[in-house]
């Protein structure tokens, strides 16, 4: 093994857990790099920043970041994160997981956390497949794309995740790809500074399964696709950003609005009804 210089984000990683499990050409590591840079750039209080993952390839992110980090059950990162945030509102809570975890088995939790405007940042690495288990169909697998459980190509309709998040009440919705590393890091840093349910979708390659099975070449050719097919449209109507198989990818920040969070609403409502008897809730001592 060659000795290398310390990478500038090493202090944010659990280096004692390297090497990581991700395949060559996988996009998840790229997103983690962006995330680490965003943490640096935004000067986030690392002791107050916690990360929660579900299960899957992206679900392993929590295990590599040197933060208070929680690797939970499949689909349930968001309700775990909800408990963390509500019990200690000082925490900056990040949920980092994949498309299958967050929008299939965890879909119900996703829409309700958005509806309630629970103050958390949800980062979804969308590689259109379940990587950890061998490349099965997810709610985002595009029409006609082959998956191990859709051997003749998917015939299901898909979720357009920015539209889903927007329509459920997310206050910040953006999409980038693993090609757009600078924009993505900036977007994450900006999202750290906002309050409420924030959602970032990252289109990412899975060369081992999704690309291979769909004969889309290696990681590099997918990067080429991301580069050539992406179009940045900040403020785009989320109804018009759905994805097709190898089609155009609209990227950018689609939604950025201020709404009271669940805790804001709780405090306001109890104050209204209970008056001075109610002491504003600031966390469980």
């Amino acid at each position: 093994m060659t000795t290398t210089q310390a990478h500038p984000i090493e202090y944010l990683l659990r280096m004692d857990r390297m090497p990581h499990i991700w395949c060559p050409g996988c996009g998840i590591g790229v997103t983690v790099n962006c995330f680490a840079r965003a943490l640096q750039d935004s000067k986030a209080d690392l002791d107050k920043t916690v990360i929660v993952s579900g299960i899957g390839c992206t679900g392993r992110v929590a295990g590599y970041l040197k933060l208070d980090s929680f690797h939970t059950t499949h689909g349930r990162a968001i309700p775990f994160a909800t408990g963390l945030k509500l019990a200690n509102p000082e925490l900056n809570v990040v949920v980092y997981s994949g498309d299958g975890d967050l929008t299939a088995i965890g879909g119900n939790h996703f829409i309700h956390a958005a509806r309630r405007n629970i103050d958390m940042l949800v980062i979804c690495v969308n590689n259109f497949t379940y990587g950890m288990t061998g490349g099965q169909l997810t709610p985002t697998t595009p029409y006609s794309a082959v998956a191990s459980t859709a051997p003749y190509g998917s015939f299901e309709k898909t979720f357009s995740l920015p539209f889903l998040a927007d329509s459920c009440g997310a206050v910040y919705v953006a999409r980038w790809t693993t090609f757009h590393v600078r924009q993505l890091a900036r977007c994450m840093a900006e999202a750290f500074t906002k309050r409420g349910f924030r959602f970032i979708e990252i289109i990412s390659p899975c060369p081992t399964l999704y690309q291979r099975r769909n004969k889309l070449g290696d990681g590099l050719s997918f990067m080429k696709y991301l580069k050539e097919s992406s179009e940045c449209k900040d403020g785009a109507d989320t109804r018009a950003v759905a994805l097709d198989f190898q089609g155009k990818i609209i990227v950018g920040k689609f939604v950025d609005r201020d709404q009271p969070t669940w805790l804001d609403d709780m405090n306001r409502r109890y104050r209204e009804k209970l008056g001075d008897k109610y002491e504003e809730y600031k966390g469980i001592k």
């Binding site: 349930r76 775990f80 408990g83 963390l84 925490l91 309700h112």
Partner: peptide, 21 residues
């Protein structure tokens, strides 16, 4: 908090516990 189902309820409490509740 009334959660969306029992799956959510039974793990939201773990989040709260690890935050000190």
């Amino acid at each position: 908090i009334q959660m969306e189902d029992e799956l959510a309820s039974s793990i939201a409490i773990y989040g709260a516990v690890w935050a000190g509740a």
